[in-house]
Nucleic acid binder design. Structure first.
Length: 364
DNA sequence: GCGACAG
DNA sequence: ATCTTGTCGC
């Protein structure tokens, strides 16, 4: 049953939260504490972790918290823990940790008890570290509470302490794309709060890396770069992928997207990606086409239809034209390959990365 | 079109 | 976060 979000907490609660943040902030260690962090090749580093919380669509309480551990430098998943949780605290900017951290700590604790040998030596956290309203973001919070080195990786700039996503910032991003690897994010106080990082070649949109705990900013940035196959560091990306998949498997087709209205023929033709959409580089040899001998899944009829790629992917995926058994009526396409039968779904997933998608022409 | 607002 | 989709900028 979908539940509603809790409202914004009273000021009294926020005051308590601020006090707790101030208290825990004194425990943050923003320098390298481990030998591998200073090694040029991170020699001695064998396990990197990632955490994430994914939500059930239309339900602000049910979520899946995940913890994954990957080998380093291979970046292969060696441990995965996904669990459904009921969130209590609402999301309030600046207080993300109070919403998500308790469940992540549980996951770390369970790993500590059951598979201590798989304990990651560093955790990548979806969100900021010291780049935060009060210098104590979710990555610091999780780090202090678990005593693990943590790196904060945000996908959007948190505009705080004078940092602004303004024209100057955007200009720096353009320069980044052309040349450099990263640029510092300096707060009003003159302190470097984090770094904007181009996580791989051809990346358009930077990551915002900041110190969580027990690690220097330099090492955090360097390791983040070393853990990126795509824009998002692999540990966080795997945690995200797996928690979303877990929700799909657990809730089944109940959470399946509804049919979208039919698109015009013109609209169905492949066009250029929206600007900035190509966050994952295309892989060679992966072409979007219907599987050789495919037929519509039960309840669907009609030829395969090429659909728009989901946001963030330079990709196509498959859907079926025809009628839904349940939802009835209009010709339409699936917004996700979710309702395809298992074989077809696999095929569709394989074709998500499309090699020759035309790039958007940039207007100068 | 009000601006901001990590996830 | 979740949706989705032309875009840009003040």
């Amino acid at each position: 049953m979908a539940r509603k979000a809790a409202g914004r907490p009273p000021e009294e609660t926020l005051s308590l939260w601020k006090r707790e943040q101030a208290l825990l902030k004194t425990l943050v260690v923003d320098r390298d504490t481990e030998a591998w962090q200073r090694d040029p090749a991170f020699s001695g580093l064998q396990r990197v972790g990632g955490v994430d919380v994914s939500f059930v669509k239309g339900d602000s309480v049910s979520a899946c918290a995940s913890l994954v551990v990957l080998s380093y430098p291979e970046l292969e998943v060696m441990y995965e823990d996904c669990r459904m949780v009921s969130l209590t605290a609402p999301y309030v900017s600046g207080f993300l940790a109070f919403r998500e951290v308790p469940f992540l700590v549980d996951a770390v604790q369970q790993l500590r008890e059951k598979e201590p040998r798989l304990m990651p030596q560093v955790l990548f956290v979806d969100g900021n570290g010291v780049l935060h309203h009060r210098g104590f973001g979710v990555a610091c919070h999780l780090g202090v509470v678990t005593d693990l080195p943590c790196i904060g990786v945000a996908k959007k700039l948190l505009q705080v302490d004078g940092l602004e996503n303004n024209a100057l910032h955007k200009e720096k991003i353009r320069l980044l794309k052309a040349g450099g690897d990263s640029f510092p994010l300096m707060g009003g106080s003159g302190t470097v709060l984090g770094m904007a990082l181009k996580s791989h070649d051809h990346s358009t949109k930077p990551l915002y890396v900041s110190v969580g705990h027990k690690m220097s900013l330099e090492a955090a940035v360097r390791l983040t770069h070393g853990c990126c196959k795509f824009r998002i560091p692999e540990p966080v990306r795997q945690a995200d992928i797996r928690s979303r998949d877990y929700i799909r498997r657990t809730l089944g087709v109940q959470g399946a997207p509804a049919l979208r209205p039919e698109r015009s023929k013109k609209a169905q033709r492949p066009k250029a990606c929206p600007q900035g959409a190509s966050e994952e580089p295309a892989e060679d040899g992966k072409v979007c086409a219907p599987p050789p001998s495919s037929s519509p899944p039960p309840g669907w009829a009609g030829p395969p239809v090429l659909c728009w790629p989901p946001t963030g992917y330079k990709a196509l995926f498959l859907g079926w034209g025809g009628q839904s058994r349940d939802k009835g009526r209009a010709l339409g396409v699936l917004s996700q390959p979710l309702l395809l039968d298992p074989g077809l779904e696999a095929a569709a997933m394989e074709t998500r990365l499309f090699a020759n998608w035309p790039r958007a022409s940039r207007k100068q």
